[in-house]
Design a protein around this nucleic acid. Sequence first.
DNA 1: AAGATCTGTCTACGACGTAGACAATACGCG
DNA 2: CGCGTATTGTCTACGTCGTAGACAGATCTT
Lengths: 232, 232
Amino acid sequence: MPPVEPPEPPPATASKPRLSREVVLSAALALVDAEGLDALTMRRLGQELGRDPMGLYRYTANRAAVLDGVSELVLNELAIFPEDPDWQAQLRRIAHDLRELALRHPNVVPLLVTRPLSTPLGLRPLGTLRPLEQILALLIDAGFAPADALHVYRAYYGYLYGHILNELQEFIVDPEENEALLRLGLHRLPAKDFPRLRALAPVLADYDGRGELDEGITILLSGLAERLSPRA
Amino acid sequence: MPPVEPPEPPPATASKPRLSREVVLSAALALVDAEGLDALTMRRLGQELGRDPMGLYRYTANRAAVLDGVSELVLNELAIFPEDPDWQAQLRRIAHDLRELALRHPNVVPLLVTRPLSTPLGLRPLGTLRPLEQILALLIDAGFAPADALHVYRAYYGYLYGHILNELQEFIVDPEENEALLRLGLHRLPAKDFPRLRALAPVLADYDGRGELDEGITILLSGLAERLSPRA
DNA sequence: AAGATCTGTCTACGACGTAGACAATACGCG
DNA sequence: CGCGTATTGTCTACGTCGTAGACAGATCTT
């Protein structure tokens, strides 16, 4: 009989390089990106790190805090340069960056959108408030009165989030089956009740998200600049 | 010794008027409105109806289907008149109606926003596709080419959803404590990192959601009408 | 080296979604 | 009216979840 194996059967991937909040959160993000929000359970996350699930509680208060941390982590990927004097160009670039960020982490988007709904502004993870603060800085530095800056921000961010949600809703993961699945799905709709939607199948199939966002931003920025201008 | 009580100790509220999909779903909606999404568990819903939780599965496939049903129920409250020749007025009214609907059912909003993200267009509950179809009808009847109608729809609905999310994020339930809580929350923010946000506390406190939505819609509609016009 | 603090592990509990077997009821048809 | 069939309601049970609390090992301070 062979001697008892030392308890080293764990998932092969990585031994134990000391835990930390950052390690936990980025494992969480990786898991969400790879398998979706539902896969992010404390037990699974522990397993992914080769650790006892309870150990995670040394670094995060509870599961909700992990979700907040993931939101924060993702939003930190967004760069904003509040000193840029060309506020319109800056807002346009941020919009495209955020859109791409969302496409890169589609499973995180529900988090970004949903969690603030249940947390009053002042109690949110600071990382998620940074974009707000920086965009306000951008606008105020560009000459907007603070209250106007807030209005511009709201219209801008509102449209931006709306667009991203819209685009992601029509987004289907597997680009191969994209068209097939789409048509298949649409075909299921009763022809009598949804004639226009069904007729639009081909157009739906090629959605130029980037282009539509850009157009929308153009409309919005020029409209906003018309009624609220810097240094007025 | 008194005779054995017939098994009639249940929660006083309503006896047993036969179950149905509609009854189940509206109980679910009531529960969500009253206590939030997390309170909507199969067991709790069964209890609310004075029934065994497993009975619900005769009317809905699983919990996810209940959530879909609730979305559908809420969206059915939205009236759209696709024959209205004044498409801009119609879109504006729908926007305000949807906003009020969202304020009436704030706990359902995450559902409206989130569920389509994980369901391809063609597989969604039909009730949630009705607004899309009807708005397309409205625009096409007004003279837009179908593909243009889709673009208008996307920009419009995107902005609309974005606005609603934005407004709800700043919305705090208890109107009494509203300002206090808000300031309290903001006060927690490090003054060095969030100067503008903190300075805007008073402006944040009175958010005219209706007014901002209306302005945004105006900007968007006029911008859209400029580059895509009906009967072009 | 000794004590204190920090990190990791284990066990256990209550709540959840839901499969599957059964009982009660309602309904169609003679 | 009664009987067989289909529908509706109930119960038990399983596996998974989040996480409280007790404890053990590791690391740091002096």
